[in-house]
């Protein structure tokens, strides 16, 4: 693979995603139109009641007095200029809100990806090496248990044990709001707050990756090239690390790419439990408030995120397996 063609490939892939993302936006827009009630009634409801004039005034301001196709057309036209609109409920431009909330979600996602992939691969590898021993069974049973446990329950139990009983970690939030640390202290403080949410979100995926890795390792070990390597006189250790391991990784990496979308979904639950100020919580709130501008913005950003992660996964393939060509 030539590096020049890699740049061209990325550009081509990105161009291809534009119609996909626009399609996603249109479908989401139409779906949201189906939900009964609107932002004006929710705002009035939160206010504990308001006169009709007030509600009409709000609707006109939101542009909801116009036909749906005009609203959609306006939205798409603004989107092309990367103007995601204004969240009337939050009283701020949608893009600002999204960017504010993006990095906590990315932080949580990246840490979860590293932890779950790293330990999942390690556990799968060990289980495959110890196949059909008690250690293999222990790992497999643990993986199934974790896989089957609901996310919110794991989160609450971790809070109960590690926060309330042992007092090792804070219950929730992203930083200490009594101390308001600065500089490196703040970094450590955030890391301290990050532990429980990351572990909670990782456990599920860890189990998934561990099982996949084990199966993949066992499959690869039975293939002809392993026999050839043995015949060549290579050590078992070298066969495992140089050949089997790298080939076995491919399905796990594919799965990790596919799971990014659901990782965002899972982060809604984890962010709610741990009061983590990310996109997931924002999506949840804006859905119930019928804050469509904001919700469409979140969908748009999630779609872009998933597309980018899958692109990265495709590129990673090349480094794992030189036989794979892109383009």
């Amino acid at each position: 693979m030539k590096s020049g063609s890699l740049g061209g490939y990325i550009v081509r892939r990105l161009v291809q995603t534009v119609p996909v993302v626009i399609g996603v936006v249109i479908v989401n827009f139409m779906l949201l139109q189906l939900a009964p009630g609107d932002l004006a009634t929710v705002l009035a409801g939160e206010a504990g009641g308001a006169p009709k004039e007030y509600i009409d005034q709000l609707r006109a301001r939101f542009g909801q007095d116009q036909p749906v196709y005009v609203q959609l057309f306006n939205y798409l036209r603004n989107l092309i200029a990367l103007d995601l609109g204004f969240s009337f409920r939050q009283g701020a431009p949608v893009l600002d809100l999204l960017l504010q909330r993006l990095w906590p979600t990315l932080l949580l996602m990246v840490c979860t990806l590293i932890l779950s992939l790293g330990s999942g691969i390690l556990m799968g590898l060990l289980a495959a090496l110890w196949v059909r021993t008690w250690k293999d069974n222990a790992i497999s049973v643990a993986a199934i248990l974790v896989y089957a446990t609901p996310l919110f329950w794991v989160g609450l139990m971790l809070i109960l044990v590690f926060s309330i009983w042992l007092d090792w970690f804070p219950t929730s939030g992203m930083e200490n709001v009594v101390a308001f640390h600065e500089g490196w202290d703040r970094v450590f403080d955030i890391a301290h707050h990050l532990v429980l949410p990351t572990v909670t979100l990782s456990l599920f995926y860890l189990a998934l990756y561990a099982r996949l890795m084990r199966a993949s390792m066992l499959e690869q070990r039975g293939l002809d090239y392993v026999v050839t390597a043995r015949a060549k006189g290579q050590t078992e250790r070298r066969i495992t690390t140089r050949h089997v391991f790298r080939n076995a990784l491919l399905p796990v990496v594919t799965m990790a790419g596919v799971q990014t979308g659901s990782l965002l979904g899972g982060s809604v639950v984890v962010e709610s439990i741990f009061a983590w100020p990310g996109l997931g919580q924002l999506a949840f709130q804006s859905l119930f408030a019928r804050d469509y501008n904001l919700l469409l913005g979140i969908f748009f950003m999630s779609a872009v995120l998933v597309v980018i992660v899958n692109l990265i996964v495709d590129i990673v393939y090349v480094f794992l397996d030189p036989r794979i060509r892109i383009g």
């Binding site: 609450l156 804070p170 929730s172 709001v177 439990i273």
Partner: peptide
Amino acid sequence: VVVRFIADNATRAAALEKGD
């Protein structure tokens, strides 16, 4: 005075219980 937002019922109770 710091006003915190915690979406989950159980976590709110836990934060009060722990003194957070």
